[in-house]
Write a protein that binds this DNA or RNA. Sequence first.
RNA 1: GGCGCCAUCGUCUAGUGGCCUAGGACACAGGGUUUUCAUCCCUGGAAUCGAGGGUUCGAAUCCCUCUGGCGUCACCA
Length: 410
Amino acid sequence: MIRTRIAPSPTGIPHSGTTRTALFNYLWAKKNKGRFLLRIEDTDQARKVEGAEKSIEEILSWLGLSYDEKYTQSDRLDLYKKYADQLLEKDLAYQDEGAIRFKMPKEGTTSLTDAIGGKHISFENKDQEDFIILKSDGFPTYNFANVIDDHLMEISHVIRGEEFISSTPKHIQLYNAFGWDLPVFAHLPVILGNDKKKLSKRHGAASALEYREQGYLKEALLNYMAFLGWRPAGDEEIISASKMEEIFDLSDVNTASPIFDLKKLEWINGMYIRNLSLENLKEQLIAFYENDKDVSELLNGKNGDMFVAAAQSRMKTLADFKTLVTDVHSDRKKSTEEKEIAQKLVRELEKTNELNGESLLELIRNFGKTNSVSFKTIYFLLTGREQGLPLLELLKIYGKDYFLKNLQNS
RNA sequence: GGCGCCAUCGUCUAGUGGCCUAGGACACAGGGUUUUCAUCCCUGGAAUCGAGGGUUCGAAUCCCUCUGGCGUCACCA
């Protein structure tokens, strides 16, 4: 039975690294019809942040990374105490100023084979130090609780960030001290920012929740995060979560650290938006803008479908929809020549009482032809912006007077 | 600094001794379609495979050395 786990500490909102680790653990469990667990590692009471656990749950649930079992370390203090006592009895640990330290062997080597890249890693035991397993406040340290729980919860694959690789000899010696079997270790390369430093808030590294607020689709985020280090056979880059569950393999995970590329995430998100059915896109937009009265009205109005259809290929994120349908003017000023053209156009427009999409386009084509004015210029004069939704949609949103007003503006 | 990991276009990567004068995607540049813009389509530039030594008839692929980057050295995880 394959059992994996994501073991975050509730010291803040998990960033992309933790989320991607959760994804890989989830995928590996699914791929093998195993189980994926959530374990809250709240053994550092001082750094505990209120609400962090809730956001962890929210991220997992939004992304659809549902867990099969959940545990919280602070509920299990007696257990850690019991195992620490066992070590004390066996003289494998000792008291030190109120804390308990584990006696690391000082000779030989401790080694492991990492599932990522199949590499063999070894450490000289003489470089290792006795480390604290139980703090003076009665709480276990990460190094201890993590091992006890992974064993008790029968974790078969410990898939975690590469930053834990140097503490792995501690874990292995603990398993040895208890006479327990080792799990498979898989250390994922850390995700780097543009400056090639470990991704953090400094890089504007957003949590999955922030990406959601920025209008990213969970499918796109999942797809992008999976491809940060993992690459299945073939050239396909747009792969659904269910497909990933089918073909994910730890042996296809890279050994080098990837740099987070927002541009590619944007592209993938745009692809997902364009691949959505109109109804689905509209539903997502309605949910995204549920607290925005103006946009909601537009979406739910009689031309809602039309706007969604026109905006679909123009959005990279759901947030772009608002920019598309909102009255935003470009900074560009009209030249004297353009002002004259605008006045001419005003007169043309005023001739027609009934202005619908058809007649507007007809009028513009003729006007452009007889005055040799490009559509690009006319679009700017009419809308006050240099790019955006097609005129037809803008006419439906704002009406003829809006165009007239823009033509007369400087 | 000690220990450990890593090293192919700007970025994500394919590549496991000959199919590689290195392939794909993003980004970028140019062109076509189009109602601006976007989409879509086509084309292009972009890596002497970190450097230097080997091994081999033949190396991005195997070995060694160096260099660089990253990670880690807490009663944090």
